[in-house]
Design a protein around this nucleic acid. Sequence first.
DNA 1: AAAGCGTGGGT
DNA 2: TACCCAAGCTT
Length: 296
Amino acid sequence: MPNNPPNEGLVTVLPKRLLPWFDAHNRTELPWRRPETTPWGVLVSEVMSQQTPVSRVAPLWEAWMERWPSPADVADAAGPDILTMWGRLGYPRRAMRLRECAQAIAEKHGNEVPRDLDELRALPGIGVYTAAAVAVFAYGHRHPVVDTNVRRVVARLSGKPDSGTATSQADLDACEALLPEDQATAARLSIALMELGSLVCKAREADCASCPVVDVCGFAYQDIPEGPSRKRQKYTGTNRHVRGNIIELLRQKAPRPRSEIDLAWKDAAMVNEALAQLLHEGLVETDETGLFQLGA
DNA sequence: AAAGCGTGGGT
DNA sequence: TACCCAAGCTT
């Protein structure tokens, strides 16, 4: 009896079960899954989806890609246009970083999204997850792609509670150990794992009854205590709330005088603080006459 | 390395 | 009503 590593079975079973399941349940209506989508389109979809539900991203991605199809198009766009187009997706700094990313690709990579994981990781706004997602989903490479869905799925498969914290090297290793050797199969499995977490093995409630790998899962038949959940952040009444209101005001109409910025929040001191930050970060600026507008 | 960064839908 | 959750990244 060979002493196989514990994941040997799963490595064989997962593709056999998950790939057919994915063929049947893959959300092909997500616009970036159309076959003609470029690597840049994939990258944009991933950045927009950072901490934002894909249902809200989809329509915006369509409009964005139609207006600015390539990195060079985004690189040349004006700041106020970028921020207005981004709309209410949230975390507007992502939009500005996406433009920086586009500029780097246009200037240093010949307007082509790099294939190499480290080159991707070096781009503004691209972290470990997004770099892997682009390398795998756009180029079909073999890397662990670990977002909150995959982290949860992999943890549950092995019968452990999801850490609920930021992805660790151990999470990456655990995922990598589940990938088959064949590149194309590994890439397909990576999307399937994420889709399973998104549609079936959900955070609040795992729908084990409709799971294609329920019989090999360490979670399904056990009472796994939930791990410490990620620390939740307040929004109502916080600095972020004020910042959001100010940016929204300027998306609606700009330029505006300071007196109208003060309408964003009843606490003037909080407006002062938030506005100072936004000016410092370049999300807001003043024109020659001292009126406020979205940053260039 | 913990904290900060938007927004909205579901329960 | 609150709270949870959503394809994370940066400093």
